[in-house]
């Protein structure tokens, strides 16, 4: 599996990563090498194997419906890059 510049640009956009123009080629090569590595998997017949998403077949525990968290806005917003009137600020979103 080999990725070209367009593939890298598309993936970088999906992942919202700015990649410098001069680095694209190297990413393309690195990613292609990784995909070559993982392609070993394709040789294995896994048709009847149930995918294993978690190490153990444990099941989800249910939480009681209780409000346990109060207002922590000031505390939690101390690490925010930009806040005004209690709202996180981002560049204007145009819909």
């Amino acid at each position: 599996m080999s990725l070209d510049r367009t593939d890298v640009e598309k993936i970088a956009h999906l992942a919202r990563l700015n990649i410098a123009e001069q680095d694209i080629q190297e990413y393309a090569e690195n990613l292609s090498n990784i995909l070559d590595l993982v392609d070993q998997m394709q040789a294995v017949d896994t048709q009847d194997i149930t995918p294993m998403a978690h190490p153990m077949d444990a099941i989800q525990r249910l939480r009681l419906d209780e409000v346990t968290e109060g207002n922590q806005r000031d505390h939690l917003q101390t690490v925010a890059p930009a806040v005004e009137a209690g709202l996180f600020q981002v560049p204007k979103v145009i819909e």
Binding site: I49, P51, M52
Partner: peptide, 13 residues
């Protein structure tokens, strides 16, 4: 890729 990897994961387990 992903589903295949999860199947391989079970084989390894």
């Amino acid at each position: 890729y992903y589903k295949k990897a999860l199947q391989i994961r079970r084989l390894i387990q």
